[in-house]
Design a protein around this nucleic acid. Structure first.
Length: 250
DNA sequence: AGCATTGTTTCACA
DNA sequence: TTGTGAAACAATGC
């Protein structure tokens, strides 16, 4: 599920629990809560309240009352934030807060690659993909010899673009994922940024990245929804990539 | 059985 | 030193 649009929806879920007193914390999953020992996050948060929820790219964090510790959350490959839901089966709730009103916030994550951590560090995280201005986008994305898609996926360059959002955006912008990032003209970079913002806005509104026009066709048998050409497939930037060889020529 | 997976970090290498 | 790519991580679904 989780790319920037899903993370933004998760942030909205955290908003729902702001102000509630935390009475219990489940931080027993030592992998998800690394490097914390069990009980560390529990000790830091019990008795406090979350007062604000933030997001940069796919990284989430919440501030606590009276300048208390910051709780960082990441959805990993398959996580979601559940609020006031029944506990998930099979210990899929990898981290959870219980509130005085009986409610609950859980990081539900089958794959277990999500994270819950105190005082998260965003030093190596680039500007948010939905907020980045045109000049910064040109300067950061439009450089280097790496394939354009690999550049978009680099969270240190800009944050929030995942594998599916990258394919959707490149298809919308009619740009090849294989083009060296530094070879793009300023106008192409502007168009790419516009396509990215539009794809993000749409995905947040419609409920996730797979609501895009291209993603549903992203399959070995898939064809371009624009021209009907069989999609090309390759590994780029370490991820499986689909694109239309006609609409998105090198 | 084998392979792929909407993410991040670490390590090796040029 | 910097940039790039592959492997590791954990678990599930086809």
């Amino acid at each position: 599920m989780p790319e920037l649009p899903e993370a933004e929806r998760a942030r909205l879920q955290i908003d729902r629990v702001l102000g509630r007193e935390i009475v219990a914390v489940d931080d027993r999953d030592t992998y998800v809560c690394r490097p914390h020992a069990p009980g560390e996050i529990e000790h830091a948060l019990t008795g406090r309240r979350l007062v604000s929820a933030h997001r940069r790219g796919k990284f989430l964090w919440a501030e606590t009352d009276d300048g208390g510790p910051i709780l960082g959350l990441h959805l990993g490959m398959a996580g979601r934030i559940d609020v006031d839901e029944e506990p998930a089966p099979r210990n899929w709730d990898r981290f959870a807060l219980t509130f005085a009103d009986g409610g609950r916030l859980a990081l539900r994550d089958k794959r277990r690659l999500g994270r819950a951590v105190l005082e998260p560090d965003f030093v190596h995280v680039g500007p948010d993909a939905a907020e980045i201005d045109r000049a910064t986008f040109r300067a950061r994305v439009g450089r280097g010899g790496a394939p354009l898609k690999a550049r978009l996926l680099d969270q240190g360059v800009l944050s929030g673009v995942g594998n599916l959002l990258a394919d959707e955006t490149l298809w919308q912008a009619r740009l090849s994922p294989r083009r060296p990032a530094g070879s793009l003209a300023p106008e192409e970079l502007d168009a790419l940024r516009r396509a990215l913002r539009a794809a993000i806005r749409s995905a947040i509104r419609l409920g996730g990245v797979h609501t895009g026009a291209f993603i549903p066709h992203r399959d070995r048998e898939g064809r371009c929804p624009r021209c009907g050409t069989a999609l090309a497939r390759d590994t780029i930037g370490g991820r499986t990539t689909y694109w239309c060889p006609v609409c998105q020529p090198d």
